[in-house]
Amino acid sequence: MKIWKDFIKGLWEENPTFRLLIGMCPVLAVTNAAINGVAMGLATLFVLVCSSTIISLIKNLIPSKVRIPCYIVVIATFVTIADLVLAAYFPDIHAVLGLFVPLIVVNCLILGRAEAFASKNTVTRSFFDALGMGLGFTWALTFLSIIREVLGMGSIFGFRVLGEWFTPFLIFVLPPGAFITLGIIVGLMNTFTRKTA
């Protein structure tokens, strides 16, 4: 039951993007097209799950004074793996995400879960915590990027869904669109949560 709670909290209650508002840099930067949002979410999910599991596994061996460098080395390792694998098997996505993949290293969501959860809890709990948080991050990015792509380009995953009558609001695929969309979603979620609570 505890494990289920660890897993489910990242999806809504403590959703990293919409509730905790951490890891904002990729959230704002890459969500201009649905495919980028999904790819960035999955890459982060992979790094988060692997690094949380490994850090939880070796937490008792790490002296507390050097824990942050140790975490960063572990995280950077998985980020580099993700970067190489994307470059080799998904070159198109790699070309679009470009510099944002190496920047997953400094996504505070990952270091945050390592410091706040994986370093204090069992391997199983850390795994499910990371999985929940990662999936929460992924759906948030996907949701945000679909809204922005529909409004900004009239398409979803590159397929045109709105007819010729629709004039795209270019601002939604530009940086201001990220802030506007995120603000409205967070506002709606807060209102909604308060009512049901």
């Binding site: 790490i62 460098p69 140790c70 080395v73 572990v74 390792t77 793996i81 190489l84 080799a88």
Partner: peptide, 21 residues
Amino acid sequence: VLMIISLFSGAVLAQTYKVTI
């Protein structure tokens, strides 16, 4: 400890590089 972790990291990355390059 930091050295051992870095060595492991290096070994894993060398292998990944060899497979993907």
